[in-house]
C-alpha cells in the first residue's frame, strides 16, 4: 500500500488486507499493577491505541493491598502482542506482565445465566446445572438464575445447552488466572 503522501488511490481490499494478520491464538495476560486511580485507563489505552479489542477484563485486589491484578484476554497474532506487552512494561505503574501459557495456567470465570423456566423445563435445567457443577441461585415461577464457574469453554458449553430453553440474560466476569506450581504468577 502506498505511503500516505502519494496520490495513488487505495482500494478498500488493500486497506482490509493491510489490517490482516492480527487475529491469532487467544492470549491471557496477567498484569500486576499499582492500586492507584487511572492505572486501568493507562493499561487499556495501550490496547485501544493499537485497535486491539479486549475480549474479557477482570480487575481485583491481590494479597498485597497496594497492588491490583488485571487479567485480560484478547485475540492477536504473536508480534502485535509482543509489542503491546513491551509497551505495558514501560508503564510506570505496571510491575509485572505475564502472557500466560495455557498448559501452565489455571483460568476460571464465573457466569450468571437467567433462563426462562416453566415448571416442565425446570427439572431438565436442574439436571444440566448438576452436570456442570453449577448452582441455582434464584428461582421463581417463570425463570431461574444459575451460577456456573469454570473455564471459558465450559461456560460456553453451558450457554449452548441452555439457549434453547430461552436464555433471558447472561453476565460473565471475564477470566481470572493463576499459574500452576509453587512459583508466583
Amino acid at each position: 500500500m502506498g505511503e500516505p503522501g502519494t496520490k495513488e488511490v487505495i482500494s478498500l481490499e488493500e486497506l482490509e488486507a493491510a489490517g490482516m494478520g492480527r487475529t491469532g491464538r487467544k492470549h491471557l495476560l496477567s498484569i500486576l499493577v499499582e492500586n492507584k486511580p487511572g492505572v486501568l485507563s493507562r493499561v487499556t489505552g495501550l490496547f485501544a491505541r493499537r485497535g486491539f479489542n479486549i475480549d474479557t477484563l477482570a480487575v481485583g485486589p491481590t494479597d498485597d493491598p497496594s497492588l491490583s491484578r488485571i487479567t485480560l484476554t484478547l485475540d492477536g497474532a504473536l508480534h502485535p502482542i509482543d509489542q503491546v506487552t513491551k509497551q505495558l512494561h514501560k508503564l510506570i505503574n505496571v510491575l509485572k506482565i505475564r502472557d500466560l501459557e495455557p498448559d501452565e495456567t489455571l483460568a476460571r470465570e464465573l457466569a450468571l445465566f437467567k433462563i426462562s423456566a416453566d415448571g416442565a423445563q425446570r427439572a431438565e435445567i436442574t439436571q444440566l446445572v448438576e452436570i456442570f457443577r453449577g448452582k441455582i441461585v434464584d428461582v421463581n415461577r417463570r425463570a431461574m438464575v444459575v451460577e456456573i464457574t469454570g473455564t471459558q469453554d465450559k461456560i460456553e458449553a453451558f450457554e449452548r445447552l441452555v439457549r434453547p430453553f430461552g436464555l433471558v440474560e447472561m453476565a460473565r466476569t471475564g477470566e481470572i488466572a493463576i499459574s500452576r506450581g509453587r512459583g508466583e504468577t
Partner: peptide, 9 residues
C-alpha cells in the same frame, strides 16, 4: 495519557 512517559495527579 498516550503521549507522556508518565503523569501524576
Amino acid at each position: 495519557m498516550p503521549i507522556v512517559k508518565h503523569s501524576f495527579m
